[in-house]
């Protein structure tokens, strides 16, 4: 399988105009974890070093890992590791079998990074979620809607945002963002 031509749905495209840059990030390991607290947070902390008892709709990064809040008993971990295998194995080792779920979703999603002074306006065109800088700040994330697609959006810094989208919706969101970029 190492001669697959396409590694990510958007083939690492880049769209750049004045005040706006949109690009697909390289693939990274993504793992969703569900289970009862506090066992879940203890396992995540021991494996990633990140505090998992976090406020709703926030994310946090340390070293190679980023942790996202997805629900009261659910977290998502991004890792710069080439595969999720080690991460999945060590999490499963720490969690009670049959009462938790650790799932490799690396290829289920892709991430589009959008940045620049026009970024917030472009995002606001497709989502009912409030992305005004007064409300949506670095370290915040939200699962919401963009057009007809479900997304996970996070604010990395000032005007840089990561939009995680399902593989099959990636082209739709990409075209939507690029098209709107021409009008903002």
């Amino acid at each position: 399988m190492d001669n697959l031509a396409i590694e990510t749905p958007l083939n690492a495209q880049l769209h750049s105009i004045e005040g706006l840059s949109i690009k697909e990030l390289p693939i990274c390991a993504k793992v969703t974890v569900r289970g009862d607290m506090p066992a879940l947070s203890a396992a995540i902390e021991s494996v990633t070093g990140l505090p998992a008892l976090m406020e709703a709709n926030t994310c946090t990064t340390a070293a190679a890992n980023t942790l996202y809040w997805l629900g009261p008993d659910e977290r998502l971990i991004y890792s710069e590791d080439p595969t999720a295998e080690t991460l999945v194995a060590s999490l499963r080792e720490q969690l009670p079998a049959g009462q938790s779920a650790v799932v490799d979703v690396s290829d289920y999603y892709t991430v589009i990074q959008i940045s620049g002074v026009k970024a917030r306006s472009v995002i606001a065109s497709g989502t009912p979620f409030d992305v005004h800088p007064r409300e949506f700040k670095p370290g915040h994330c939200a699962q919401t809607r963009f057009g007809n697609a479900s997304i996970l959006i996070s604010c990395r810094e000032g005007d840089t945002f990561d939009i995680q989208v399902r593989w099959s919706f990636a082209e739709y969101v990409w075209k939507y963002l690029c098209r709107v970029g021409g009008y903002v």
Binding site: N57, P128, A142, T144
Partner: peptide, 17 residues
């Protein structure tokens, strides 16, 4: 359009529900 207060996420647009 109206706003619904999700007990976990807070206030969000109706179309998310």
């Amino acid at each position: 359009m109206f706003i619904i207060d999700c007990p976990y996420c807070g206030k969000r647009d109706q179309t998310e529900f």
